[in-house]
């Protein structure tokens, strides 16, 4: 029996976000909200652990009230419980404040294994998982691509690095951040869909997790977004003319002058 907590985030589908270079504002018309793709693999990992050795999977998210739909989606995949951390006081949280807030909720629920995605695709920071582990004073293993073995008080996983992977053993409780190679997320089942409609989602505010008011939201966030802008335009572009043979010839002349060949 293990208690697994999966941290998920609802994000805009970033492939469709654009910036208008003239006004420096975002063009995000009709961009749908999804569960962060890495977190789908985190959910799947949690469900597989439960299905294999028994236990409960709780999904948690910190976000605005509409993030509830992400939790319901997770329940439809088979998660047992869901907690939404929502409070105006959480607004403006950076990764430090987010991890602190999530760590308070995790302490309240209690967990043996905590699973996060490697990173959230809106910010691509990949910081929340390791920061939660530090706040909980437990070990973590990043970029888990395979869970090899789980024992009562230890776990063995594969950690994906640049040009290699490590086999890492950790004591439990532990926090894992997962990459997409780990598994293929399942689709919601019919039973899951019914359960998700009926499920009661717990809603916790800062007082429910006894959070220190100086460590949450904007007050607890050392970093600030100063501004956002469009990526710089690409350097000069040259067109090649003629038949493919001629284009390749012209290209090679250019590459020679640039000393690439």
């Amino acid at each position: 029996m293990v208690n697994v907590i999966v941290c998920i985030k609802q994000v805009p589908d970033t492939a469709e976000v654009r910036i208008n270079p003239e006004t420096n504002t975002l063009i995000r018309d009709g961009v749908p909200s999804i569960i962060n793709p890495y977190d789908m693999h985190a959910i799947e990992a949690g469900l597989q652990i439960r299905d294999n050795i028994g236990g409960r999977v709780t999904v948690i998210t910190m976000g605005p009230p509409q993030a509830e739909s992400a939790l319901r989606d997770a329940i439809s995949m088979g998660c047992d419980d869901a907690v939404l951390l929502t409070d105006r006081a959480f607004a403006g949280s950076d990764t430090l404040a987010t991890s602190y807030t999530l760590s308070r909720a995790i302490s309240k629920i209690g967990a043996d294994i905590i699973i996060c995605g490697k990173q959230a695709i809106d910010g691509d920071t990949a910081q929340v998982g390791p920061e939660i582990a530090e706040f909980l004073n437990i070990p973590h293993v990043s970029y888990v691509r395979k869970i090899e073995d789980i024992k009562a008080d230890s776990i063995r996983v594969q950690r994906l690095m640049d040009e290699s992977y490590d086999i890492v053993e950790s004591s439990i409780p532990v926090l894992l951040t997962v990459v997409k190679e780990l598994n293929e997320p399942r689709l919601p089942s019919l039973r899951g869909k019914i359960a998700s409609k009926k499920a009661e989602i717990k809603k916790w505010t800062s007082s429910d997790i006894e959070a220190d008011a100086d460590r949450i939201g904007l007050r607890g966030s050392p970093t600030q977004v100063k501004n956002i802008f469009a990526p710089g335009p690409r350097k000069e572009r040259k067109t090649l003319e003629g038949t493919v043979e001629q284009q390749v010839e012209a290209l090679i002349q250019e590459l020679r002058s640039l000393k690439c060949v």
């Binding site: 805009p12 970033t14 492939a15 976000v17 654009r18 910036i19 975002l26 695709i121 809106d122 910010g123 691509d124 050392p222 970093t223 600030q224 977004v225 100063k226 501004n227 956002i228 802008f229 469009a230 990526p231």
Partner: peptide, 20 residues
């Protein structure tokens, strides 16, 4: 001034850590 891409590189953001 810490400048980084966000949203899969669709936008750039300047981040500050002024008080700590």
């Amino acid at each position: 001034l810490q400048i980084r891409p966000a949203f899969g590189g669709n936008i750039m953001a300047t981040i500050l850590c002024p008080n700590s």
